[in-house]
Design a protein around this nucleic acid. Structure first.
Length: 410
DNA sequence: CATCCACCGGAAATAGGGGGGC
DNA sequence: GCCCCCCTATTTCCGGTGGATG
């Protein structure tokens, strides 16, 4: 038996997990603690579909990890079950706009869920849209379209959204209603007023969970996910407390719990301890940062390297202008074309959105208005991720001096 | 209190690489 | 083949702007 066999074998008989998948982000549980009011409310919204009436469009707002997606999927699953029972024609189409990224891909995903085969590129949005409409007009029944993380669709112009809200005008036997999900309040205002009024027929707001509620959620999942007695007493409270700090993000809490279990398993530990949770938290953070940086375009990486350099490995704050100067030196070393200051400003905004850096716009009066920026993550992680790039790696700034980094633990 | 710095950030346009329909 | 489309990264152009300074 070689090494790989033993890896496989230990995976076959986990000492820690019973049903690990229960902790995965896309798992929809059979019950949703502390969301019964929301479940009921959304249920009332979609229920008319069972009578063949088009449900109102709805807009769901709440921060990440507040159960928006889980509640929606849960309610729609129950709705389809009820529809089968009562022999009414109700179908749900779920599209995550962040995963699908562009209007084209969102529509392509919808088309496929309607049983349409479409090329992954080449068609115009309009063509794709009319194929969907054509398809729908041949079908009968109620179609509930869920657009999750709809902000990613709106940011690229909301024409598609507008067209979708009025698709019923072109249909006969079938009807479409839309449930939009977002975690950005600002989004609602930035919408075309017509879309806003149409989509906002019903609005649901999901509030964050507190630590107590998170504990309940974790406990009910952990009971299925883990073997009996493998969790130390402090594990769930710690996950709950850590996630409660980050605006009550249940997904975060579940991730921590799962990864803590994975670490314990990798190490062959008998139990999952609070220490495993702390390390899980650090590992999640590190992986997230590494993934993001790895997929950055070249110049974004170079700009990030410039920030690393200009801040002395995260010790100080720097302005856009300082970053630009440092960036230009780097680029000259590499004999590359440099991007404009406008672009650097844009990239800084993107890095901020991604949570890699934290910046704010300040005015220094006579000395101008600019953005001051600092690293928002561990500089070592950034440096490691950047050094993977064959072009960027060699021009990374040397670590200025050994300094005590903030421990990842509490 | 007007001035003016050092950028901010919207809009439109382009380049260049992916592909259609007919 | 021809002409059209999508998408990302970037450029060009340009009208702001908070507040220390004179």
């Amino acid at each position: 038996m070689d090494e790989l066999d033993s890896v496989f074998n230990s995976a076959l008989r986990s000492r820690i997990f019973e049903h690990r998948e229960v902790l995965l982000p896309d798992y929809v549980p059979l019950e949703l603690p502390h969301r019964s009011a929301e479940v009921k409310r959304l249920g009332e919204v979609v229920a008319p579909a069972l009578r063949g009436e088009r449900p109102s469009n709805a807009f769901i707002y709440g921060l990440t990890g507040t159960g928006k997606t889980a509640v929606t999927k849960y309610v729609l699953r129950r709705l389809s079950e009820a529809a089968v029972q009562s022999e009414s024609q109700v179908s749900a189409i779920y599209v995550n706009a962040r995963e699908r990224e562009t209007p084209y891909k969102v529509l392509a995903d919808m088309a496929e869920q309607l049983g349409l085969r479409v090329p992954f590129t080449g068609l115009s949005i309009g063509e794709l849209f009319s194929r969907i409409v054509k398809r729908l007009s041949r079908l009968t029944g109620i179609y509930i379209v869920v657009l999750d993380e709809i902000d990613y669709l709106v940011r690229r112009g909301d024409d598609v959204l507008y067209d979708l809200t009025r698709v019923n005008e072109q249909l006969g036997q079938s009807k479409v209603s839309i449930i939009g999900i977002t975690n950005s309040v600002k989004l609602i205002d930035s919408l075309d007023p017509r879309v806003k009024s149409s989509l906002g027929e019903v609005q649901l707001v999901f509030s964050p969970y507190n630590a107590e509620q998170l504990k309940d959620i974790l406990s009910s999942r952990a009971a299925k996910a883990f073997k009996e007695g493998v969790l130390d007493d402090g594990v769930i409270p710690l996950c709950a407390a850590l996630a409660a700090r980050e605006h009550g993000d249940a997904r975060r809490a579940l991730d921590m719990l799962r990864v803590a279990g994975e670490i314990a398993e990798r190490e062959g530990a008998e139990k999952v301890t609070e220490d495993h949770v702390r390390r899980a938290r650090a590992e999640i953070e590190r992986d997230k940062v590494t993934d993001v940086i790895r997929t950055l375009p070249l110049h974004s990486k170079l700009i990030l390297a410039a920030i690393l350099d200009a801040t002395g490995w995260g010790v100080t704050q720097v302005t856009t202008g300082e970053i630009y100067d440092t960036y230009r030196k780097l680029v000259r070393d590499l004999n590359l074309e440099e991007v404009t200051l406008r672009r650097v400003s844009g990239v800084l905004g993107e890095l901020d959105m991604l949570g890699i850096i934290a910046g704010r716009i300040i005015s220094r009066g006579r000395y101008g208005k600019t953005r001051v920026v600092e690293l928002a993550v561990n500089p070592n992680t950034v440096a490691d991720a950047l050094s993977e790039d064959p072009l960027v790696g060699p021009v990374l700034p040397p670590k200025a001096r050994v300094r005590q980094l903030r421990p990842d633990a509490l």
